[in-house]
Design a protein around this nucleic acid. Structure first.
Lengths: 107, 107
DNA sequence: CGTATTATATAAGAAAGTTATATATACTAG
DNA sequence: CTAGTATATATAACTTTCTTATATAATACG
């Protein structure tokens, strides 16, 4: 994982986007998908991921459902309709921000 | 200014890059150049900028020079050679991170 | 039987922002 | 002539967000 500090502010967007793609995901699954897609360049930590998920839940953007799989409790997170709208908006904001950054850094 | 939270982690890169382009810049000038280049999408706050500049100074990446212009003290910041090397590296890391983010978000 | 992998979660601490505040000059508009 | 805007630097209090450490527990592999 190259840049640890750059993840600041983007964790929320990552989570919203992945949950908008999948009907439901559990925490560990989210970290593994990010790791897989980025060839280990971005590795989410649980200490950052769970507070983010809990905050999204508190905001009413996602709901949870606990299921027992292989004798282990697994907690699934899925976006509400408000969560899906927010996801679309925040992904757009992220790309707008990257465009703005390009204007600053391209010289 | 659209996305306030996304600036987290990128302020340092912005400052390093702008200072690597210009022999010297003062704080206000940095905020104005960012605002100008991004058509006001990114507006740096002084409460974030000055601590960042002071941290870079403490790390030996920049040096300061105070000059009086129009009866007002103006503090110029300029990168050391170590600062220039760091700037190149951190700008590269930023772009690598954006590429990784694209891999996560492009689906 | 110990280590790695899978799996969730909290707590303490650090880092990096935001917002508010203080200070001060110069220019512009009413 | 004075109130507001622009120029200019800086600190302090506070909040958010992330890192690191810790606790817990089952399964699989060797």
């Amino acid at each position: 994982m190259t840049s640890k500090e750059l993840i600041k502010g983007t964790l929320r967007v990552i989570v919203l986007k992945l949950l908008s793609e999948h009907k439901q995901m559990y925490g560990y699954e989210i970290t593994q998908l990010v790791k897989e897609r980025t060839d280990s360049e971005i590795e989410l930590t649980f200490g950052a991921l769970y507070p983010t998920l809990h905050k999204l839940e508190a905001e009413g953007l996602l709901v949870t459902k606990t299921v027992v799989v292989d004798n282990r409790a697994r907690k699934y997170y899925s976006l509400t309709s408000a969560g899906n709208k927010t996801a679309t908006g925040e992904v757009q904001s992220y790309f707008d921000f990257v465009k703005a950054m390009n204007l600053v850094l391209k010289y």
